[in-house]
């Protein structure tokens, strides 16, 4: 597709402009639930509104958004997150001293990303009785770099490839909601310190970090600067280290666990 078509696609940019105005005009809504409250953020409405005018979701939307707009939107996701990432950098810079003070916790919490293996892998293998797709599904949070690892090692046609693609797609569709809900519930219950929850928001995806840290800031507005600085620093760290953690620790570990727990022999002893 010619570059000009992407830049001058007024249907696309016009729709995004209208969606942005509507989403920002609605603003943040807090929904109280038993153990805390869920915060609905403008960026979540923007995603839903985008889906509602997506012809692949609502076929009636084809009058406004055609396949070429859908295709042109995809490279713009990465470009549109860039100013947000730059702004995040300007929040991290002035807080450098705090971040250095939190250094050990910040670096070590990267290992916490292995929590997916602890929580998701046993359920996938032992409860849901999934096969080798559980390796691809559970070794990481399944963003683009993780797909590349699986594609490189097994190919995306393999069972492992199906696993990583499945989680990738669910994450793309619901990830921002899931992280916003997790962050707002955990922040309002007080089980963790806000600093720890902020660091955990850095998962290596700009939009998920935005939803996660945005929900935290609205739950604890007094700590806005600390939350954003720690979340942003953790996210940069994940960009830098996530790939290595996956290649050298997470994936070998998941494979070992599959050898132990997976359905190789026809016995049901594993359950």
């Amino acid at each position: 597709m010619p570059i000009k078509d992407i830049l001058l696609d007024w249907r696309l940019h016009g729709s995004v402009l209208v969606i942005t105005v509507i989403a920002e005009a609605i603003g943040v809504i807090a929904v109280p639930i038993g153990i805390g409250s869920i915060l609905l953020l403008p960026l979540l409405y923007a995603f839903v509104l985008g889906l509602l005018i997506n012809p692949n979701v609502i076929s009636g939307a084809r009058a406004l958004i055609r396949d070429r707009e859908v295709h042109a939107a995809s490279p713009l996701i990465v470009i549109a997150i860039m100013p947000f990432i730059a702004k995040f950098g300007t929040i991290i810079g002035p807080s450098m001293e705090q971040i250095i003070a939190a250094g050990p916790a910040l670096i070590l919490q990267e290992l916490g990303n292995l929590g997916t293996i602890v929580l998701a892998f046993p359920v996938a293998v032992l409860v849901l009785r999934m096969g080798r797709e559980s390796i691809g599904a559970c070794f990481s949070v399944a963003r683009e770099p993780n797909i590349a690892i699986i594609a490189d090692k097994y190919g995306l046609k393999s069972q492992e490839g199906a696993g990583v693609m499945g989680v990738y797609v669910i994450g793309t569709l619901f990830g921002t909601f899931i992280f916003a809900i997790l962050a707002s519930i955990l922040a309002t219950t007080g089980a963790f310190s806000v600093e720890a929850l902020a660091m955990a928001c850095g998962i290596g995806s700009g939009s998920m970090m935005a939803a996660c840290s945005g929900a935290l800031v609205h739950a604890v507005p007094d700590m806005e600067e600390q939350i954003l600085a720690l979340a942003g620093a953790s996210n940069v760290l994940t960009y830098a280290t996530g790939l290595y953690l996956c290649v050298f620790v997470a994936l070998p570990l998941t494979e070992k666990l599959y050898d132990l727990l997976g359905r190789k022999e026809p016995t049901n002893a594993g359950a």
Binding site: I19, L43, L49, G50
Partner: peptide
Amino acid sequence: ATPCLAYAGIA
């Protein structure tokens, strides 16, 4: 982050 998520929904 709002425009980014709008593009993501359309994409």
